[in-house]
């Protein structure tokens, strides 16, 4: 889902930004034909809006909030919860922290969390972190997505901006955080301090850290099993038929 072409044009005019495809291409770094096609087809991705906003020096969040789908985007505090922040820490970094807590001389703490997000499984981890009950079904219903397709998107780390904002909306958490998690806006644009992940990791209680690692390892185990089954099926069939 994206913003409509007519809304995008109106927004450009209201903000006094050029509607020329080549100029928009220059601002966003996209090819002018691509931008032209997006407008003509009436389906302008949020990344184009953000690109234009960045190009003209405007706050991307304020730009997105001009569209009806995102009008309440900045109506809640922007800062994420600790669980949301920790969801964006890879389990390898979580385990480094665990090792450090076992023996700080043998396993010195990293100054920085090493693995950036989005990483494999980070969208699913974020949804799990904000889930208060049935967030997946709510998102599927409100965005008109088939629930199985949403599960696939989460497995493939392909949550869309509108799905992320909808998930945050129904969970009562920061909607801006959702856009940071899906990578539409940067941590800086979302008002996340640079060391937010390191800080959240350091202050985490031992039992919470172990529980989080356990959850992540369970997910990893399931994922590996699924991949192994898929590999066996596909390999068997290609071997037999090919």
């Amino acid at each position: 889902m994206a913003v409509s072409g007519s809304d995008f044009k109106q927004w450009l005019e209201a903000r006094g930004i050029t509607t020329s495809a080549s100029e928009l291409g220059r601002l966003t770094g996209l090819h002018r034909v691509t931008v032209g096609n997006q407008i003509r087809r009436g389906n302008v991705p949020e990344s184009t809006v953000v690109g234009v906003a960045r190009g003209v020096g405007m706050d991307p969040i304020a730009a997105l909030a001009d569209f009806k789908e995102y009008k309440d985007l900045d109506s809640r505090p922007r800062s994420p919860t600790a669980a949301e922040v920790l969801s964006q820490v890879h389990h390898a970094d979580l385990m480094v922290e665990l090792q450090h807590r076992f023996h700080e001389d043998l396993f010195p703490r990293n100054d920085k969390v090493r693995i950036d997000f989005p990483h494999d499984g980070s969208h699913r981890a974020w949804i799990d972190a904000i889930d208060t009950g049935d967030v997946r079904h709510d998102v599927a219903e409100k965005t008109g997505t088939a629930i199985t397709y949403l599960f696939n998107q989460l497995s493939d780390n392909k949550l869309t901006p509108i799905q992320a904002v909808t998930a945050a909306r129904v969970s009562g958490t920061s909607m801006v955080a959702g856009l940071v998690v899906v990578g539409l806006i940067t941590m800086e644009e979302g008002d996340w301090p640079e060391d937010i992940r390191e800080t959240a990791l350091m202050v985490m209680k031992n039992e919470d850290l172990v529980e989080l690692i356990q959850q992540r390892l369970n997910l990893l185990q399931r994922r590996l099993r699924q991949r192994k089954e898929a590999l066996e099926y596909a390999e068997k069939l290609t071997d037999l038929i090919g």
């Binding site: 890879h90 390898a92 693995i115 990483h119 494999d120 590996l224 991949r227 192994k228 898929a230 590999l231 596909a234 390999e235 069939l237 290609t238 071997d239 038929i241 090919g242």
Partner: peptide, 23 residues
């Protein structure tokens, strides 16, 4: 059938569903 043979010769299944942990 050729597509299956191609997938077999190029080991597409193994390349797609790599169960390694490296990121």
């Amino acid at each position: 059938l050729w597509a299956f043979a191609f997938a077999k010769s190029r080991q597409l299944a193994r390349k797609t569903f790599d169960t390694g942990l490296s990121i």
